[in-house]
Nucleic acid binder design. Structure first.
Length: 271
DNA sequence: CTTTACGCCTGACGGC
DNA sequence: TGCCGTCAGGCGTAAA
């Protein structure tokens, strides 16, 4: 499941092969993604150089002179770099053929992802304009989270997964960071003390850093650009570990649905 | 304004 | 063996 570490791992892998290469052709086999693949995409980017491969939140940004291709991996998206001529398989929806004889192939069984062309500044697109800070931005700190949480009754777990508060924290890493910082996921955001938000920020940054270093977490669909899985799954302390013992205190890890999402926690270590 | 529910989509899995 | 219901979940939208 691609969250920020998986998207960042993908960005780092494709960057050296994509930056400064020229798009030779675009093949769209399935237009129906999260948003329809831009009609006339080939016309817009054929012959154009990919100037930069960036990331904002969970969107990969292939920046061209006149606009940006915003790729989102959704729930089951994968990107691979292949030599020209490898026949497409099931769910291989979009290819960008590059003049360096490489193909960037977008594969996404569940089609929650997107390949979206935006003209001009992507940060002003509806997808990115209203997002909160990156988790590694200095603007993201305990003070800021605490201030944003004033008057909020929603669960702290939903609060940190809200992209307007901070981006890139999906279900897996929200559970892990709350465990590491000893906060119950169902606690109201407005009822978490400042010093505990400072600990939570540190825990989010730690868990994301470690996951990026491990190449992400492979649970169901995700794989790195090389096809290799991510190795962070072994480091998960609570996610999908209901019924197993807590790594700290041996209490049984519990599972509870909070805000329609599975949440995992230790009722002894987290308060 | 905040909060909640829902839909998009396929594959895996359990029950019968 | 096969069919069917349920679940997984990012995230935008609509409704409360």
């Amino acid at each position: 499941m691609p969250e920020l570490p998986e998207v960042e791992t993908t960005r780092r892998a494709i960057k050296p092969l994509l930056e400064h290469s020229i798009v030779q052709a675009v093949n769209v086999r399935q237009r129906k993604l999260r948003w329809p693949v831009t009609h006339g995409l080939a016309r817009r980017i054929r012959g154009e150089e990919i100037l930069k491969v960036a990331r904002r939140a969970k969107y990969l940004l292939l920046i061209f002179r006149h606009g940006t291709l915003m790729i989102h991996l959704g729930m089951s998206g994968r990107l691979r770099i292949l030599p020209v001529g490898v026949p497409p398989g099931k769910h291989d929806h979009v290819d960008l053929v590059l003049t360096n004889r490489r193909v960037l192939r977008f594969h996404d069984p569940r089609r929650f992802g997107s390949v979206l062309w935006v003209r001009g500044d992507p940060l002003r697109s509806p997808q990115l304009a209203h997002l909160g800070p990156e988790p590694f931005d200095e603007a993201f700190c305990g003070q800021m989270l605490f201030a944003a949480a004033r008057g909020r009754r929603a669960a702290v777990k939903n609060f940190i997964m809200d992209g307007r508060i901070v981006v890139g924290v999906g279900n897996i890493y929200a559970n892990e960071a709350l465990f590491r910082s000893g906060i119950l996921p169902g606690r109201s955001a407005g009822r978490v003390a400042l010093h505990r938000y400072q600990g939570l920020v540190a825990a989010i940054q730690e868990v994301l850093t470690e996951a990026i270093e491990a190449g992400g977490t492979t649970l169901r669909d995700y794989a790195q650009v090389t096809g290799e899985p991510g190795y962070f799954e072994q480091a998960l302390q609570v996610y999908e570990r209901a019924g197993e013992p807590c790594v700290n205190c041996n209490s049984v890890i519990r599972r509870k649905v909070i805000g329609q999402r599975a949440s995992y926690y230790c009722a002894n270590c987290q308060r």
